[in-house]
Nucleic acid binder design. Structure first.
Lengths: 197, 197
DNA sequence: AATGTACTAGAATTAATATTCTAATAAATA
DNA sequence: TATTTATTAGAATATTAATTCTAGTACATT
């Protein structure tokens, strides 16, 4: 049924990610994405209704993949050890996927998805992200403290997500990747934030 | 000598900051800044050679002010206690100046100053920031560990700057301000990262 | 081989914004 | 009060980038 495609969605989205990683969101113009991926502008619009939908899909792909890794890691036996492992997973992820993590950590959702009128499927995917993260943290609080309240939630968020994010960010900003030493600091900080009073 | 001005630089820059805090950098168009501040576009260009120069000045004002506070706090007697005080100063600053801290923490320098060809004075001010921060951290390393090396520098940067930044960021992103509880977590994390092995 | 259909192509159009330009205005000084 | 000049005003222009449109292309199925 019809001609087979010469340029895949993946090529397009990857090109956009590289452009953002190198020069920020504003560098990922439709013309630039076309040039980098080899696909003509017409083909971009054949696949995506708009630039915003293209960038939103890129963003959602990344976050979903990352969050899936977090969630499964935090599911370990000992909640404390699972928390540490999750924090370290996040740091390692940025080491292994510097382009993707630059996009994720250095640019804000608003820059990629400014309006609320995304194509339905994308809007649904976007709406699931935060609840899923909340559910993950809630589970942790229940297992670790035996109680879920907003202070615990914030505390867990800082220890498990915030600290590794920041630890990586300062390197990613400078075009580097967090060195191995950082892992030890992240682990300590994570444990310190979660420790009993 | 000539007509006195009706709209100050400060009004203009403040309006730009509010717009950015509310809607991101892209919301701070010259038209929007003009509307919010009351000044007509012509007046904006009378004071600033370009939008970029206007935003750069805003950014530099904020960072310089913030960094001055950091530097003087980190100068205390006991290096460890001074480090903790500095980290807490940063968190409190975001609590007291939510608009300014949103601009500083949520948006990247590149978004505000994309080119390298800023008017000379601004370029000079921009060039001083990072060295000044480095000097500050270097002094801390010398006093606390007795030795300055890149691992120490990174570690100090995480403990003193990174951790409070992240702790505030997660609230600022949601349009909130870090609650008082956060201070205790920041202090612990700061001490943990700086603790002996 | 003929035909249908998704896809490629990229030029033309539109939309949004920064910037320029020319003409008023009003305060300070002589 | 006359004059000077920084400043206000905002319409006109230029620029940049998204989006649309029309035509061609090649694969898959019949």
């Amino acid at each position: 049924m019809g001609r087979s495609s010469k340029y895949s969605k993946e090529q397009i989205v990857t090109s956009a990610a590289e452009l953002i990683a190198e020069g920020g969101v504003q560098a990922a113009t439709m013309t630039a994405i076309a040039k980098r991926s080899g696909a003509p502008i017409g083909s971009l619009y054949h696949r995506y209704p708009s630039r915003e939908a293209l960038l939103a899909e890129l963003w959602l792909d990344l976050i979903e993949q990352f969050q899936a890794g977090l969630t499964s890691t935090l599911d370990g036996d000992s909640p404390l050890e699972a928390a540490v492992a999750t924090a370290l997973y996040a740091v390692r992820w940025t080491r292994e996927k510097p382009v993707e993590s630059r996009v994720m950590l250095l640019f804000h959702r608003r820059e990629l998805m400014q309006s609320d009128d995304l194509p339905g499927e994308l809007a649904e995917r976007a709406a699931k992200l935060e609840p899923q993260l909340g559910e993950m943290l809630r589970g942790f609080c229940r297992r670790y403290w035996g109680e879920v309240n907003s202070a615990n939630m914030e505390r867990a968020r800082l220890a498990i997500l915030g600290i590794p994010a920041e630890s990586a960010r300062s390197y990613l900003e400078r075009g580097k990747t967090p060195p191995a030493l950082v892992d030890a600091w992240v682990e300590r900080a994570c444990r310190a934030v979660l420790a009993d009073d």
